[in-house]
Simulated scan of single mutants.
Amino acid sequence: MREHIIQKRGLDLATHEQIYRNEVDAYEFMISKQPGLTKYINEIQPIHGLDILDLGAGSGRFAASLAKQAKSLICTDISESMLNLLDSKLEKQGTHRNWKTLIADHRKLPIEDQSIDIVISGWSICYLTHTGNERWEENLEQIFKEMKRVLRNRGTIIIFETMGTGTEIPKPPEYLKPYFHALTDKYDFKHRWVRADYEFPSFEEAKNGTEFFFGKEVAQRIVHNEWSIVPECAGIWWKHY
């Protein structure tokens, strides 16, 4: 799951690609400090007994809880390292094997037509739809075309994205605002935001546990404010078809 964006340096794809390949344990430790968000999914669409697609599943942030409730779960990501960690996590969890992992691009999913009840994507679509990518609008159209292709009639799409790290109220990055506006204005998604703070035992551990991903600006803010709890705002967009 591509959880967040380095605020100081913008969308640092090269750095994050390296993290998703080679620093999966550090990444998994960091996101383990956030609260579970499955309750918000269930408020939008109860997931028990459904066929679910976790798009950009990463190390299994959502999958660990989704697998317990789903009829079936497909987890896609372009990082094999992340999916290997996800697979190992679910195996250790002892969940009945109702999931599979697929290395896949959001724009071309190796999934059958009309086979999914709910598509969930957390902090992932943004990597193809930020304004630094000249084809972001085309990418978004392709992603939606694929999601709608695999979705059954009366299915649901739920998208989570960052609304700001180190801020107590939403302050989304400028390079994501057009994408966010497209979700509500062009694609008619409903929207809300919630807090998804990182909670560490101390501000030193908060700095050490997040700087590799968010960069020096956020780390300096953590030290200056002595934050053991690093504020994070998460946006949620959803639509029933």
Rank of each mutant, 00 (worst) to 15 (best):
N42L: 05
I19F: 07
A26T: 11
H16R: 13
A14G: 03
Q93I: 03
D113W: 04
K239S: 05
V150S: 01
Q34M: 15
R221P: 00
L85D: 05
Y20P: 04
F214N: 01
E141N: 10
H48I: 05
S65V: 12
S72L: 01
K108F: 01
T95G: 00
L86Y: 09
F200Q: 06
I103N: 02
A63Y: 14
Y198R: 06
Q45W: 01
G94V: 00
H16T: 12
A63M: 12
P46W: 04
G10K: 06
K207H: 13
I169A: 11
G215F: 12
E141S: 08
A70G: 05
N22Y: 04
D77T: 13
K171G: 01
K100E: 02
N208W: 14
I31G: 08
A14S: 11
A219R: 14
L183G: 04
P35T: 00
L90I: 07
G209R: 14
A63G: 13
I41T: 10
I47N: 04
V230P: 00
E80T: 03
L50T: 10
P172Q: 10
E226L: 05
K39N: 07
G164A: 10
G94I: 00
N42E: 14
K190R: 08
F203M: 06
H130A: 02
S124A: 15
Q114V: 03
L55A: 15
R97Y: 00
L50M: 13
G235E: 11
Y20F: 14
R195S: 09
K145V: 03
S65A: 13
F212W: 14
E23H: 11
D51V: 06
Q142T: 04
F180E: 05
L66D: 05
V230Y: 04
S81P: 12
R2D: 04
T38A: 05
E17K: 11
H224I: 05
N98P: 04
R107H: 07
T167I: 12
E205W: 07
F180K: 03
R21E: 09
E174F: 08
P201K: 08
A196Y: 04
A14Q: 12
S121A: 15
A57Y: 09
T162W: 10
E23G: 02
G209Q: 14
V230T: 07
L66N: 04
F144S: 00
Y179P: 02
E161D: 15
I74D: 00
R192P: 01
N208L: 15
F160M: 15
A234C: 14
D188K: 07
D117Y: 07
R154Q: 09
I120Y: 02
P170Q: 11
K71I: 01
G155F: 11
L13G: 01
I159F: 12
G166Y: 02
N98D: 02
W193G: 06
L50C: 08
G49I: 07
I125C: 11
D197F: 06
D54C: 04
C75S: 15
A104Q: 09
F62L: 15
R195V: 02
M82W: 12
Y20C: 07
V194W: 09
F144I: 02
I143W: 13
I116C: 03
T184N: 03
I78Q: 13
N208Q: 15
T101R: 00
I74W: 03
R221Q: 13
W238N: 04
A14E: 13
S59I: 12
R135G: 03
W136N: 08
W136V: 09
